[in-house]
Design a binder for these strands. Sequence first.
DNA 1: TATTGTTATACTCTATAACTATA
DNA 2: TATAGTTATAGAGTATAACAATA
Lengths: 151, 151
Amino acid sequence: MHPAQVGFLLARLGAYAAAAFAGRLELIGTTPPVAGLLRAIGRQPDRSQQEIAAELGTAPSRLVGLVDGLETAGLVRRTRNDRDRRLYALRLTAAGEQRLAEIGKVAREHGRALLAPLGAEDRAQLGGLLSRLADGHGLTPGVHPGHRLSP
Amino acid sequence: MHPAQVGFLLARLGAYAAAAFAGRLELIGTTPPVAGLLRAIGRQPDRSQQEIAAELGTAPSRLVGLVDGLETAGLVRRTRNDRDRRLYALRLTAAGEQRLAEIGKVAREHGRALLAPLGAEDRAQLGGLLSRLADGHGLTPGVHPGHRLSP
DNA sequence: TATTGTTATACTCTATAACTATA
DNA sequence: TATAGTTATAGAGTATAACAATA
């Protein structure tokens, strides 16, 4: 198999994996951008919208609507920073933590279904190869520019 | 490594591979949708726009602008079908064939660069694992719904 | 003057629906 | 009437630039 074909397969499967995950998220009433934002807030609470926007590689203005929706849904709380009243500190509510846990469950189910065609040993091998590839191209694990706000 | 993490890596690397390929295409003045369309026409010439739209999983109306651009650039020729004058038959010109060859060259360079972090044996292993995964999920090789018109 | 969050605006990409010409 | 290609319109998603409050 030529390297170009492997690259094609990778792009194809990546798009498939992202779409399949988005489909699962839709079933629990959320989207990849929202899931990525919840994860970013949960991972490191009490940051400003600017900070989170920078981490996610998106425009700060974009967070406004997303955070508005999460706040209305009672999943995220904005609290003013008393030392610098221009900043908000973003934090998950209890309901937000629970939603994040649901998303984690969906992600695990998605991963299992995605790798179902492979045996345990092959999965480990694939994971190792993809890790080395991601590492070789400077793709930090955990965070992710590229897809702007998706998980 | 958990399956969810492998799924995440796959989506991440897939997006990276697609973006990197798009970046290379931009250097030769084209885009993934255009490259995909050229490939579809070259692979099986003299088909109608409807047929090609169906293969690519896109709306027929979308082809109009793309084919217009390719025709103006002298890469594709529309010829009326004399038996049914509603249909066009699409075919690459000599310049179109040459452009498609350039795209192929770019794709090979992209593949090499993408897999550079792996040795020859690992590349073959990765190709095999990804093929089995794609096969297991019914992703036909060669064509590709998912990314609508990209190569 | 600089920065945070916000709003307004515009741009890209794509699909859906209406239109024409042929059948 | 049905279909191929076309045009017009609209929607999703996102970025850029202008704005108000605060520093």
